[in-house]
């Protein structure tokens, strides 16, 4: 069985706490007539980096679903990921993407990229022709306590509680943008192996209703609205994720 060592956010917090609680430097006795030497400045504690990992699902031979007009899911997810990346950059948020081209990328490589980045949030982008609005999914694993070593296949279990909070933030932001949302739990690669708060964002066409106009997944305006809402949620998450 493969294991992953978690030394990310929790480890950094512990180090920071240790530095803050270190005893003050002892005062040396001053010789009379000598100028006083200023005490060394306390070490500056760097706050943990806020990095968002964006994984455009599928790619290469793995085309994903076939959407309206024959468009492939892998193309939509790549476009949405790029749109989200630029929207987040514009808000001053650092982004790591798992792929920026149409290439074969196994789930293990995606999880490795995300885990090495030590993301404060990980988003897995999908698209489907079924349903309406945006479907948000978190891992179906049972939450467990955080540990130094986590089994690769179930590493997400230590982050499920945080993932549900992140899902709630995105849900609120999408509702604010008048985009219908459904919430669920699912078992989809590589979600269960990620060591970060993660949400799978599956974009479906908008079905026309009382407050919504029918729009396909390929609609640029619809994609922009989804990207802006998700970016707003992540901006809010930046101040909430350590609580």
């Amino acid at each position: 069985m493969r294991w992953i060592e978690v030394a990310g956010a929790l480890g950094m917090t512990a180090v920071a706490a240790g530095l803050q609680q270190s005893p003050p430097a002892p005062q040396l006795p001053q010789a009379p007539g000598m100028p006083s030497v200023p005490a060394p400045a306390p070490p500056v504690v760097q706050p943990p980096r806020f990095v968002v990992v964006v994984d455009a699902a599928h790619g290469g031979d793995d085309t994903g679903a076939r959407l309206s007009g024959g468009v492939l899911e892998k193309t939509i997810t790549l476009g949405l990921a790029a749109r989200l990346r630029s929207t987040l950059h514009a808000r001053g948020i650092e982004v790591v993407t798992t792929r920026q081209a149409d290439l074969n990328l196994p789930p293990v490589s995606r999880a490795e990229t995300a885990n090495e980045a030590r993301g404060a949030a990980c988003l897995v982008i999908h698209a489907t022709a079924t349903g309406s609005g945006v479907h948000l999914f978190t891992s179906s694993l049972t939450p467990t306590a955080n540990a130094r070593f986590l089994a690769w296949q179930t590493a997400q279990s230590a982050y499920v509680t945080q993932s549900l909070k992140l899902e709630s933030e995105i849900d609120s932001a999408l509702a604010h943008a008048a985009i219908p949302v459904t919430l669920g739990r699912a078992s989809v690669e590589p979600m269960d192996s990620l060591t970060c708060p993660e949400v799978a964002v599956e974009v479906a066409p908008l079905v026309g209703g009382h407050v919504t106009t029918a729009k396909p997944v390929t609609d640029a305006g619809y994609q922009a609205a989804v990207a802006n809402a998700v970016a707003a949620a992540l901006e809010q998450w930046r101040s909430d994720w350590k609580q």
């Binding site: 994903g64 679903a65 076939r66 899911e73 999908h126 698209a127 489907t128 022709a129 079924t130 349903g131 479907h135 999914f137 459904t182 669920g184 699912a186 078992s187 989809v188 799978a200 599956e202 479906a204």
Partner: peptide
């Protein structure tokens, strides 16, 4: 089976 996280789940 329609492809997608929601319909498959």
């Amino acid at each position: 089976q329609p492809s997608g996280i929601e319909p498959e789940t």
